[in-house]
Simulated assay, not measured.
Amino acid sequence: MTRDMGWIDIGALDDVPLRGARLVKSRAGCIAVFRTGENEVFATSNTCLHRGGPLSEGIVHDRKVTCPLHNHVYSLETGEVQGADSGRIATYPIRIENGRLLLEAAAIAKADAA
């Protein structure tokens, strides 16, 4: 990982499979980086609110992920639980630049302070 003007290079876009995820460990905890079928990327907490399931092992569909343990569905855009359940997981600013994934360092630092 390298830092560049407030953003942390966490690897290549191609390191994350289409409709899949990869796990990034930070001081803020484990962050799941998701790639949709349309090549969009999102970063969220890796932990399901229901029973702590690993969201990075879930099913990515549209702009959502389904927890592999109990099928709770989260919006990758907002972190909001979908359906009848309520709650929100943390989301982190992420972007693609020249085929590289960049995660905003300030967002992770803010999560550390919380």
Rank of each mutant, 00 (worst) to 15 (best):
M1N: 08
M1L: 12
T2K: 09
G6A: 13
G6Y: 10
G6N: 07
W7G: 01
W7S: 02
A12H: 13
L13E: 15
D14T: 09
D14I: 08
D15R: 10
D15W: 05
D15H: 13
V16G: 03
V16F: 01
P17V: 00
L18D: 00
R19F: 08
R19W: 04
G20E: 09
A21P: 00
A21W: 00
R22K: 13
L23W: 10
V24G: 04
V24K: 00
S26M: 14
A28G: 02
A28V: 02
G29V: 00
G29T: 03
C30W: 12
I31M: 00
I31G: 03
V33D: 13
V33F: 05
F34P: 00
R35L: 08
T36Q: 01
T36W: 00
G37I: 00
G37L: 09
E38M: 13
V41L: 12
V41G: 06
V41F: 14
F42M: 03
T44F: 07
T44N: 10
N46R: 06
C48D: 01
C48I: 04
L49K: 07
H50P: 02
H50C: 07
H50D: 01
G52P: 04
G53C: 01
G53S: 02
P54Y: 10
P54E: 12
P54I: 08
S56P: 01
E57H: 12
E57N: 12
G58W: 01
G58H: 08
G58A: 07
I59N: 06
D62Y: 14
D62I: 05
D62N: 10
K64D: 15
K64Q: 15
V65T: 05
H70E: 08
V73R: 05
Y74C: 04
Y74P: 01
Y74R: 01
Y74W: 14
E77M: 09
E77S: 12
T78I: 05
T78S: 15
G79Q: 09
E80N: 13
E80S: 07
V81L: 15
V81G: 09
Q82F: 10
Q82P: 02
Q82I: 03
G83Y: 03
A84Q: 04
D85R: 08
S86I: 14
G87T: 02
R88L: 12
T91P: 07
Y92Q: 09
R95T: 11
R95L: 07
E97I: 05
L101P: 03
L102H: 00
L103C: 06
A105C: 13
A106Y: 09
A109Q: 15
K110Q: 14
K110I: 07
D112S: 11
A113E: 07
A113L: 07
A113Q: 14
